[in-house]
Amino acid sequence: RSLEKQFQEFRHQLDDSGSLRERIRSVAADIESAARVMHSSLLLIHQSRSIPEVFKKAKALIGVLIELYGKLAEIMGERPGQYYRYHGDWRSETQTVVSLLAFMHWLETESLLLHAEAEEKLGLKSLEFGLDIEDYLVGICFMSNDLPRYVVNQVTAGNYDCPRKVLKFLTDVHAAFRMLNLRNDFLRKKFDGMKYDLRRVEEVHYDVKIRGLTMKGNSTEKQGNGGRS
C-alpha cells in the first residue's frame, strides 16, 4: 500500500541521513580531538615557553584540521543545500578551532585573524562549505577569554610590555564588535563577556604602569621567555 511504501521510503531516507550524521559526528570528534591537543600544546605559552617551541606541534595540527574540514566539505558535497541541516554537529568544535587559530595569529602578527584568513587557513575556499560568520565571531570571543590569563602569566614571567599590546588589540576588537548589530543570542552573551576580559587586561596594564615596569621591562626581557621564574 502507498502508505507503507511511503514510510518505507522515509525510513531509508532517515537511515541515510542518520549514517551521514554519524560520519559527520565522527569527523567532528576528530576535529574536537585535534583541537584539544592543539589547545594543550598552546597552553605551554602560559608557562613562558618560546613561541617557536610552542607552535611546532600546533602548526602540524593545522594540517590535520585542513584534512578534516576537507572531509566535512566532501560529505556535505553529497547533500547540496543541506549545510545548515547538519551544521549544528560541528559548530562548537569550529568555534574552538577559530579561537585557537586567532590566538596563534595574534601571537605571530599582533593583528586579528580575519574571517577570510581563517577560511584560508582551514582550506575552505569553496562557497559551498564556508566558515559560518557567527561561528567565526564566537571563536574570536573565546580567544578574548584567554587573553587575561595570558597577560597575567606574561607579566609574571617579566614580559612587561605585553599588557599594553594586548590591551590595544582587545580594545580594537571590542570596538569592532560594537559596530555589529547583534541579536540577543549566544553570540551577544559571549560578546558581553568580552568586557570583563578587557577590564582584567586593563587592570594588569595599570599594575605594570603604576610601578614603572613598562620602561624597564622593554629593554631587559624583550622576549619574556626566560623560562619559569
Partner: peptide
Amino acid sequence: NPMRNAFSKYASYLNDLVLFLSVLVN
C-alpha cells in the same frame, strides 16, 4: 593604525556580510 584600519575594512566587509546577516537574515 593599520590594524584598526584593517578592522574597519573588515567592518565594511561586514556591511556586505554581517549586516546581510543581521539585517537580511535577522
